[in-house]
Design a binder for these strands. Structure first.
Lengths: 117, 117
DNA sequence: GTTCCAGATCGACAGCCATCTATGTACATA
DNA sequence: TATGTACATAGATGGCTGTCGATCTGGAAC
């Protein structure tokens, strides 16, 4: 899978010897790159990457109270990371009584995963 | 592929009803997560992700002078992004005379790619 | 009701990031 | 030697990030 580049105005390089053959660059929308960058950015923190790992490996939904003792960070900080992941569309949550259960949205990782392969 | 969690000191939750079955969490080293987070963080910018995309699609090494006109950012900013990618171990470069050629180190993406799949 | 609890939000703070312009460096050419 | 060119580095700046303690919210239990 290739990322489409929305080109900046093509500026001719000044005359003189070229350093190399021009790169092939497809046009239109850099939206795919932006979408994948959002996901990658959310995964760009060790805590969040491990959170996603735990949630993925645990098939169902995981209670926050089970996640907190896994990390050496405060509960508000963990909540902050979960929010980041939710904002990136990687996880979603569900309230049941006092508890909140988080789970991964598998499709959210597909585009990046396909591009990386 | 699973990320190994180096556990924080296991703290027993206070008595009372449990919200759910305890999560299975393997021990040892969070190093894998840290390594992958470094790579993901570097890909967490649209410009850098497109840079990697261009370099990957272009089999060989690509001259910086060919990359600059592809983006609407200044040459120093592009240089900054290339440095970030190099610091993350995703690309490397080679000087030939006046020109600098960048190329992707494919193995750098393998661990993250495998984990995502 | 009142109290307790899980989780989210707030406010603060130090550090990092993306971007720019200006300048430096090293090679090429005249 | 002087000039030009390709790229890197320096310094500045506004914005974002990860972390914390304190507080708020809403459901449960008494």
């Amino acid at each position: 899978m290739a990322v489409d580049l929305e080109l900046a105005p093509k500026q001719k390089r000044p005359a003189g010897e070229r350093c190399c053959e021009p790169v092939v660059y497809p046009d239109v929308q850099r939206e795919a790159a932006s979408r994948m960058a959002v996901v990658a950015k959310a995964l760009g923190d060790p805590v969040r990457l491990q959170l996603v790992d735990v949630l993925r490996r645990h098939a169902g939904k995981v209670c926050v109270c089970e996640l907190v003792p896994l990390f050496e960070i405060s509960q508000p900080t963990l909540s902050h990371h979960l929010k980041k992941l939710r904002d990136a569309g990687i996880v979603d949550s569900e309230r049941r009584g006092l508890w909140a259960y988080y789970y991964v949205i598998p499709e959210a990782l597909e585009e990046l995963s396909a591009w990386l392969s």
